[in-house]
Design a protein around this nucleic acid. Structure first.
Lengths: 233, 233
DNA sequence: AGCGGTAGTATTTTCGAAAATCTGGTTCTG
DNA sequence: CAGAACCAGATTTTCGAAAATACTACCGCT
C-alpha cells in the first residue's frame, strides 16, 4: 500500500472505507457537503483519493445511517433536510432518549454517576475558555456528545443505544442550523447542569421531562426562525 | 449483461448487490446460515456467483441491519443469537411498536382501516388452508408481516417505521426458534384478531397493551423452553 | 518443555478497467 | 406537431487481479 493511504488510514478506523465514511459523515453533518447534493463517483474519487468500490462501501454505510440516500442505478446524494424530517426525527429521538435515560437512572452505578459528573465538568471547562460561539468548536461538540452519551450509558440496551447514536448524528445538521439562527443565546449550560442534577439525584421523572424539553427546544427554534431554509415539506 | 445476471437481478431489487443482500437476509433469518457462522468471501463467491466487491456491499448493508457483524480486517460473520440479545431486542421493539400503534390509531383514516382488515383477512385465508404448521410457510410469514405493518402504517413516522422494520427482521430468527420449541400451539390468530379489533375500534390503550403482550409472549416462550440453545449470556 | 519470533498460507481489502445502465437530445414516424 | 425510438455521452455497477493484512505452524532458543 502506498504511503498516503497508510497515513490516511491511521486517522480513523482500520479500513480505508470506514475512514472515508467517517470523514464524509463529518462533512455532511457540518454541511460542507450540502443537503441534497448529488455525490458523483468521479468527484468523490478526486476528493478522497479512493476507488469506486471503496467509496461505494462508505456510502452504503452512510445510507444505512440516513445521512445519504441511495437511488438504485442513479447514484447517491446527501440526505436532504426538511421540516417534516426534523419533526419526525425529533419525535423519534424523544421517544428513545426518554426511555434510555430512565433506565440508565435505574441501573446506573457509582461509576456511571462519576462519568456523568466528569463529562459535564469537561464541558464546563471548554465553555469557560471561550465565552461565545463555543457551539461551533469541534472540541465542545465532542464533549457535548460525550455528556449526553454518559447520561444514557447505563441503560443496558445496546440496540437502542446504537439507534440513539445514529439519530443523534442525523440531528447534528439541524443543531447547527438552530445555532446560526437563534435570536439570543440559549442557556444550554444551565439545561445540562439541571439534567446532570436530576440524573445523579435519581429523579427519573424530572430527567425525562428535561431531556424531552432539551431536544424539543432546538426543533422549536428551527421551526420558528429558520423555516424559510426549507422548501415546503 | 449476461443472461444469468439478468435473471438473478430480476428476482429482487434493481442491483445485484441488493438482490444478494435480500437473498442472504432470507438465509440468515431462516437460520440456513447459522448464527455466528463465519462468512468467507471465497465460499460466498461460489454460493452467490458474485464478486468480492458486490458481496462486500451486500454484507455492509446487512451489518447495518444487525443481521451480520463486521470485524474490521477480520471479515464478516452471521450475527450470533443470545438470550441477552433477545431481551434487548424485545424491549426495543415494544417501546417503538407501542408508540407507533398508538399514533397510527390516532391518525389512521378509512383507507388505513381497510388495509388492516384486508391484511388480517388474507392471513386468515392462509391459516384456514393448512391446519397446522402454517408458521413455517413463507406465504404466511409474508402475510403476517404485512398485517403487523398495516397496524402501524398510519403512524406518520418514516424514521421509526424503518427502525421498526429492521428490528422485526432481526426478531425473525427468535420467532422461528419459539415456534419449534413451543409445547402447545399458541392462539396467534386470536391475538391478531383482538389487535385488529382494538385498532379499528380506535381503542389505543388496549391495542398498545395487546401488542406489547404479543411481542413479549414469544420472548417468554423462548426463555422458558429454549434457553439451552444459547451458551450463557 | 515453553516461548518468541518468523516464514508461508489464507483471507480480507483495495484498485482501475470493463460492462451495464441512465440521461438528454435528436431524428424519425404517424 | 406530438410522441416514440434511438443514439452518444455521462454515470453507476460489477468484475477479478493485486496489495495489504491476519492467521498458522514451524523453528530455534532459553
Amino acid at each position: 500500500m502506498n504511503v498516503t493511504a497508510f497515513k490516511r488510514r491511521k486517522e480513523f478506523g482500520k479500513t480505508l472505507a470506514s475512514d472515508i465514511a467517517h470523514r464524509m459523515r463529518n462533512e455532511i453533518v457540518t454541511c460542507r457537503l450540502k443537503p441534497g447534493e448529488v455525490l458523483k463517483f468521479d468527484t468523490l474519487r478526486l476528493a478522497y483519493g479512493a476507488s469506486f468500490t471503496t467509496l461505494r462501501e462508505a456510502l452504503t454505510c452512510l445510507a444505512a445511517e440516513g445521512l445519504v440516500v441511495a437511488e438504485e442505478q442513479r447514484g447517491f446524494k446527501v440526505a436532504p433536510i426538511s421540516l417534516s424530517d426534523l419533526i419526525d426525527l425529533t419525535r423519534a429521538r424523544i421517544l428513545i432518549e426518554v426511555d434510555l435515560i430512565r433506565r440508565s437512572i435505574e441501573n446506573g452505578d457509582d461509576d456511571w454517576e462519576i462519568a456523568v459528573i466528569s463529562s459535564i465538568h469537561r464541558l464546563g471547562i471548554i465553555e469557560g475558555r471561550e465565552i461565545e460561539d463555543y457551539a461551533d468548536n469541534p472540541e465542545w461538540k465532542a464533549a457535548h456528545r460525550e455528556f449526553h452519551e454518559s447520561l444514557v450509558a447505563a441503560c443496558g440496551s445496546p440496540t437502542l443505544l446504537g439507534i440513539r447514536q445514529s439519530l443523534f448524528e442525523r440531528a447534528e445538521r439541524y443543531r447547527n442550523i438552530s445555532a446560526r439562527f437563534r435570536p439570543r443565546p440559549r442557556d444550554k449550560a444551565g439545561e445540562h447542569r439541571a439534567l446532570m442534577k436530576a440524573a445523579v439525584g435519581r429523579d427519573a421523572d424530572r430527567a425525562c421531562e428535561l431531556i424531552a424539553k432539551h431536544i424539543q427546544s432546538t426543533t422549536d427554534n428551527v421551526i420558528k426562525h429558520a423555516s424559510e431554509l426549507f422548501s415546503q415539506n
